[in-house]
Write a protein that binds this DNA or RNA. Structure first.
Lengths: 146, 146
DNA sequence: AATTATAGTAACCAATTAAGTTACAGGAAG
DNA sequence: CTTCCTGTAACTTAATTGGTTACTATAATT
């Protein structure tokens, strides 16, 4: 499967809004940073708006963050973009007349959920503020080497 | 993305080999339990063989488990089938001349890896023996209700 | 030895999805 | 009232998954 970069791009987008807050934040400008099209950016922003993470006004640029960055976790971004899409999927269609096929979903569902919960717990620990801080640190390293 | 069921089907396959060890284990029989085609089953078995989890002989049925089930974790099955494919992907192509675009990969890679490691640790805790035990428990529940 | 059953694998096909593109209606601001 | 922009729908393209067909080779059976 082609792995989605929407989650990654959404974090990018939110960090961009913060770091470049004093520039003209059009979907076109953001798209140039992500190297995608403005429509893709607006699609992502639509999801983020619906999840209450940003506020935008139709017709005019300059989306703003609806909460302090420190109160937006990577997990809340993930939910905003991917909903409750599982990272691992159980095959839903197996032979119910077989001992394995008839019970595998019930059993695996639990283990998969445990794994996903572990990953989500980790995503919940990191805020967008952490991401922005790290981006600025990385940039400072680059600047120091110049 | 369309989520792959190969991991799920591989666990199914291995459990089937154990539980139905005293039947004729052709790829066709296994395929009927998974409700897929024999070729798909043989493809999965090819990966599992390469990873040293089962042994097979060309031309004849009856694949056998290469290790005790209790020594095969869900994680080792995952690696056998998916390799080191990440659960979450960082967008690899962003504008390097932007503070965000130029540093987002470095930063996110770390957080994504942490989340994946947390999920993998959970998968490592569960063995196929646990899965088989649970399948048999679920089946016993069903039988009791009849 | 010939036949039959089966594994292994390549090549192809169909369905799904992601992301890019085009197009356009409508809001905001000069 | 013109210009810039958002929001969204519709379409396109490319990638991936799982299913299918077809073939070779191996093992067991007769």
């Amino acid at each position: 499967m082609r792995v989605s970069t929407r989650f990654s791009d959404s974090i990018h987008l939110l960090a961009y809004i913060k770091i470049y807050a004093d520039t003209k934040l059009t979907s076109d400008a953001i798209a140039q940073s992500i190297e995608t099209s403005p429509v893709v950016v607006r699609r992502l922003m639509s999801k983020l708006r619906q999840a209450g993470l940003i506020t935008t006004t139709p017709g005019t640029a300059q989306p703003t963050l609806a909460k302090p960055l420190s109160q937006i976790s990577l997990l809340s971004v993930f939910y905003a973009i991917e909903g409750d899409k599982p990272l691992l999927a159980v095959d839903p269609k197996t032979n119910p007349d077989c001992i394995v096929g008839g019970n595998i979903q019930t059993v695996l569902k639990q283990y998969y959920q445990d794994a996903q919960t572990a990953a989500e717990a980790r995503l919940a620990k990191t805020s967008l503020q952490d991401v922005v801080d790290n981006i600025l640190v990385e940039q400072a390293k680059k600047d120091a080497h110049k």
